[in-house]
Design a protein around this nucleic acid. Structure first.
Lengths: 349, 349
DNA sequence: ATGAAAGCGCTAACAC
DNA sequence: GTGTTAGCGCTTTCAT
């Protein structure tokens, strides 16, 4: 009906209730002197507020108490790129973040500017818009965490090396995930197992590579460095990586791709040259994105509880904002191996 | 280094530059009286600000000028649900929103509380946290648009009936998309074409159903109401819908599913009972989500420029906030038919 | 060309 | 129990 009417202020509530601003504030906040307000007054205030559909102005409140009830989220990607929101890993995390933040009554603000450098970007996060920032999977080479941390901004992170900076973080248990994969493949009789990793500067790359090497050793297999290839987590370069492995004289019988996008690229490349999965080549991915179950052959992969990881990191951030202290070691979540059609017994040829 | 240091204020800048707060403000904002500041002063201020890595406090600025440089985004879903962020349609739109907002230097705040009712939820959007709200694909039955509009909150929308409320909106040209589908199928020789729609209260359902009926008529075909089925856009119920169609004595030779998730459900159900796609049944989806190209058989579908739609709606919202006026008729974007493997010539049996 | 002063809406000391 | 006062950091008239 009445359009463009200004939102009611605390003053309006106070006036309608016949009390001072202060009293209204105290009542509505349920703050300390809560009990020192007569029932009658309290009720009048509450009623007046309800009648006006009063909602406190977040800016004013934020200014006064230096708390905004909002957290910021920063995806560890280059400035200008917004692909992250369509990436199933990121959106899985984001869902957990939104849930946890929502439960705590906080809004989630996405900083749209992207990271340039600590010098340029970090100060932007001191604009008082958010109470803290959640950093998702930043490249190890970026100075995001150190830059924000140096300014004293409350922080939590997902999937990265945050321990040295004493920043609470959550992640999948990469080592456990890789072990599930390697054991599964070995159980199927594979011994020449190749690894295709993503970007070198992602913490998961180092963790998964290490874990892979260890798991192979633990199984009594000599890891062959020739069987380690690299491309991008986006899947870009997966075909080339696959071909280089496939064209070896002693080609692998199985490939562990460090995420499902890479695995999809490998599957496509394999099909295009007529390499049969899983008959000639077993393939495993990581993440269990929705597509993994829909492709043919469906993809054996490692599922990580993205939502839980995002929620946990958010809760730690909210805790940190409230002054709590967390251990610096990342909170790890157990992965699960989802066996589908892309892996099979090693072919005897 | 120095942790927990408070962010520099305008005062700090002014002090360092040896000017008053006011002057510093004027210089840094490049506001009107811009020219009435001496070069020397201006430079000192700028330098001081740079040295301090000064960033204006968004709360204070927001309070003073009633503009926050942030837009809110509200996905038209039930309270408590956060699935939307993992839905490719929503994330495609979101990507466009983030880009357009980022280009304009605005943050994007996701309201995490979900919509309950106009009475309960609308006032929350008057908390001054954002300058306006973008509403994405709300159900026609929800009072989101009317509720927010009644409070005078600047609004723009995606994929909904916003015309009566005079709210600018953007969407794919549903009619054109459906026509592409129907013509394609008819061209392949199909005449018994079934339609499976999503929720009845989504604007796209009515639009696509209407367009389908018209397109059939235009082609000289009598649309058969028996061939209209319904399920959810999530794909839930698609199997049942498919079976009911498939078990008719005079079953359809083609199915147009109103989105790719529904089409995926149909494909799964068809496979499970051994109905061959496209030999016995042609199948078309809508949206062209990433999975559409990866499944077997790959899905013929209608691609909509989600990013552009999201970006356009965002620009209109920003325009509205700035006082611009837009026509109430939705801005429509052309879809494209992506022909893949799931459609083929009608089988002569 | 620059500064002083008021106020945005709220909270939090402190008086009464 | 309740009201008064003084900011939070910034913008914006209005003087000078």
């Amino acid at each position: 009906m009445t359009s463009h009417n200004k939102p009611p202020t605390l003053q309006d509530v106070a006036r309608d209730a016949g009390v001072s601003c202060n009293t209204a504030s105290v009542v509505l906040n349920g703050s300390r002197s809560n009990t020192r307000v007569s029932e009658a007054t309290r009720e009048r205030v509450i009623r007046a507020a309800a009648n006006l559909s009063y909602v406190p102005n977040a800016m004013a409140r934020g200014l006064a108490q230096k708390r905004t009830q909002a957290i910021g989220i920063l995806f560890g990607v280059a400035a200008g790129s917004t692909d992250y929101v369509t990436n199933p890993y990121m959106t899985g995390i984001l869902q957990g973040v939104l849930e946890a933040a929502g439960d705590a009554g906080h809004c989630v603000t996405i900083y749209t500017q992207g990271w340039v450098s600590a010098k340029v970007s970090a100060p932007l996060f001191r604009d008082g818009r958010t109470d803290g920032v959640l950093v998702i999977a930043p490249p190890a080479t970026a100075d995001i965490l150190s830059g924000l941390s140096a300014l004293g901004i409350p922080l939590a992170a997902v999937a990265c090396e945050a321990e040295v900076l004493n920043i609470p973080s959550a992640d999948v248990d990469n080592r456990a995930g890789v072990e599930l994969v390697v054991r599964h493949l070995i159980h199927l009789g594979h011994s020449r197992i190749a690894l295709i990793t993503g970007e070198a500067d992602m913490s998961s790359t180092a963790l998964r590579t290490d874990a892979f090497t260890s798991a192979m050793r633990d199984a009594g297999l000599q890891p062959d460095r020739q069987l380690y290839a690299r491309c991008n987590y986006s899947g870009e370069g997966a075909e080339r990586a696959f071909l280089s492995l496939w064209n070896m004289q002693d080609r692998p019988t199985a490939i562990f791709a460090c995420n499902d996008a890479i695995a999809a690229g490998v599957a496509r490349a394999a099909r295009s040259i007529g390499a049969a999965i899983p008959d000639e080549l077993s393939l495993v991915g990581f993440d269990d994105v929705p597509t993994a179950s829909m492709v043919t052959p469906s993809l054996t992969t490692v599922r990580q509880p993205l939502q839980m990881i995002g929620a946990e990191a958010t809760q730690m951030l909210l805790g940190r904002i409230a002054g709590e202290v967390y251990p610096a070691t990342p909170r790890l979540f157990s992965p699960a191996l989802i066996v589908r059609e892309s892996t099979g017994k090693v072919c005897s040829r």
